[in-house]
Amino acid sequence: MNKKALILFAHGARAASWAEPFERLRGITQARLADVDVSLAFLELMSPRLPERVAELAAAGVAEVAVVPVFLGQGGHVLRDLPLMLDELRAAYPAIRFSVAEAVGENPAVLNAIADYCIGTVAGAPPGG
C-alpha cells in the first residue's frame, strides 16, 4: 500500500496557544482523511519543524507527502523559505514524492468562507454558524 501523509505547514510562534486553531484544523482534516497521516509542522519557534516531521514520516515508510501552507498569503516564507526546504527534503528523501499546495489564503473557496464569516458578523449572525 502507498502510504500518504498530509502536512499542514504553519509559521510557528512563541506562545503555545497560537497553535490551537491549527491543532483543531489538523483534527478536522484527519477525521475526513482516515487513510492519510495528517500532521502539523512549523517553519520556526515550534516543533516539529518541517524537516523533523518529514524524517519521522520517512522512517514510517511514507511514500507521498502533500504540504499545505496554512498561511493567508504567499509572503517570503511561502515563496522563498518553503521551496528551499523542499529542495533539501527532496534531495534527502528521493523515494518520497512531495507535492505543495498554494497557501490556503490564496484559494478562492477559503477566501469565500472567510468572507461569509465576516459578513455574518455584520448581519448579526453568531460567528461560527
Rank of each mutant, 00 (worst) to 15 (best):
S99N: 10
T121K: 05
E64H: 11
L8S: 02
L84M: 10
F98R: 04
L57S: 07
E23D: 03
L84K: 07
A13H: 11
I96N: 00
W18S: 01
P83Y: 13
L79N: 08
R26G: 11
N112A: 15
V67Q: 07
W18G: 04
F71C: 03
V67A: 02
E20C: 00
T29P: 07
E88L: 04
Y117Q: 14
N2Q: 10
A66K: 09
A123S: 04
E64P: 02
E23P: 00
G124E: 12
A95P: 01
V100T: 15
C118M: 12
C118H: 12
L40Q: 06
N112E: 15
A19R: 14
G129C: 13
A5D: 03
R24G: 02
A31S: 14
L57A: 06
V54Q: 03
L111I: 15
E23W: 07
Y117N: 05
F22G: 01
R24P: 00
A10M: 06
G128H: 05
R26K: 15
E64S: 13
C118V: 15
L40D: 08
T121W: 09
F9C: 07
R53H: 14
M85P: 04
F22R: 05
A55V: 02
E23Q: 09
N2F: 10
G61R: 05
G61W: 10
I7H: 11
V54C: 08
P127I: 13
M85L: 14
E52H: 12
L40T: 05
A13I: 04
A59E: 14
L57Q: 08
L72N: 02
D81E: 10
R49W: 02
F22H: 07
L82D: 13
D116R: 09
G128D: 07
P108V: 08
